[in-house]
Design a protein around this nucleic acid. Structure first.
Lengths: 155, 155
DNA sequence: CCAAATTAGATGCATTTGCATCTATTGTGT
DNA sequence: ACACAATAGATGCAAATGCATCTAATTTGG
């Protein structure tokens, strides 16, 4: 008997994506219900998190935009809000007069760590019971591989 | 030698989630750049898609809300817009005077199929070259398992 | 070297979103 | 049966988002 429709390559890819996306929605729902997100919206936390991971401490606005699912203008205003709240600070980019560099303030770093701890606890409580450690590693490997294969993201 | 910090269960889970989330963001970026999303935003398409998958054809508004990453009020208004565009139609729920049932119109079904085809092509072009068929299957298994372990979602 | 094209980021404005709240209906305990 | 809580969905309103556009700086092609 020939391979059924459900084994076609196109369908396989679509179903993998669909499942990945739904899992993301479901986990995000759970996370957003926690108290951590009362203080900072997801995208706002995401910016603080990305900045906290940056080796030099400084990041260009357009580099940030690759990590976050936001338009350029929305990110611009999000950062403006974060700056008003004293969580990040700006600096004109030294090598490029158009650019802006961002850095966490002490207060921003503090808040990121605080929310990050809660966050990691919540995630652990959600993912830990769902998948074995080996499965978690494999999931990470596959999603890393997927992301790395995508190449540069469109602006 | 004792297990390093990078093997702690908590960290493992956090890294798996982080990777899953970033992959989702990256793929979504690519998808949204395509022409399919000019006609309908992601969440709007998602509602049409979910309705198209519903066996009976009718779905309660609150059931829909489990699939979509939107607040109740936003979904209410999103559906209102879809109705105005003639893509879905409403009906009071027969068994529950508070409820509303939704169904695709012919036009809605048509648009869903049209966008869906583009969509599936795009996904296939992104995921296909990134992961082997076996990896795609495994990714799907893991994300399905994750989602199924989460239990009922908060409202 | 200079004009044209490109890029980074900001801003006006309309649309979308979420929070709080409201109405209507259903479920529950006594 | 009846008061009270819980649930489904709608709505006012402020905040967030995206599109189109703008300014300024850089890069490119001749």
């Amino acid at each position: 008997m020939a391979a059924g429709k459900s084994d076609s390559p196109v369908r396989l890819a679509a179903e993998a994506w669909e499942s990945l996306f739904r899992a993301q929605v479901a986990v995000m729902r759970k996370l957003q219900a926690g108290p951590a997100f009362k203080k900072l919206a997801l995208n706002e936390y995401d910016v603080l998190f990305t900045l906290s991971r940056c080796p030099s401490g400084w990041l260009r606005l357009n580099e940030l935009n690759d990590n976050v699912l936001l338009s350029q203008s929305s990110l611009s205003r999000l950062v403006e809000r974060l700056e008003k709240r004293g969580l990040v600070c700006r600096m004109p980019a030294p090598e490029d007069g158009r650019g802006v560099l961002l850095q966490l303030t002490d207060q921003g770093r503090e808040l990121q760590k605080e929310i990050g701890r809660e966050h990691v606890r919540d995630i652990s409580a959600l993912v830990g019971p769902a998948l074995t450690p080996a499965e978690q590693k494999e999931l990470r490997r596959l999603t890393d591989k997927l992301r790395n294969s995508l190449g540069p993201l469109p602006r």
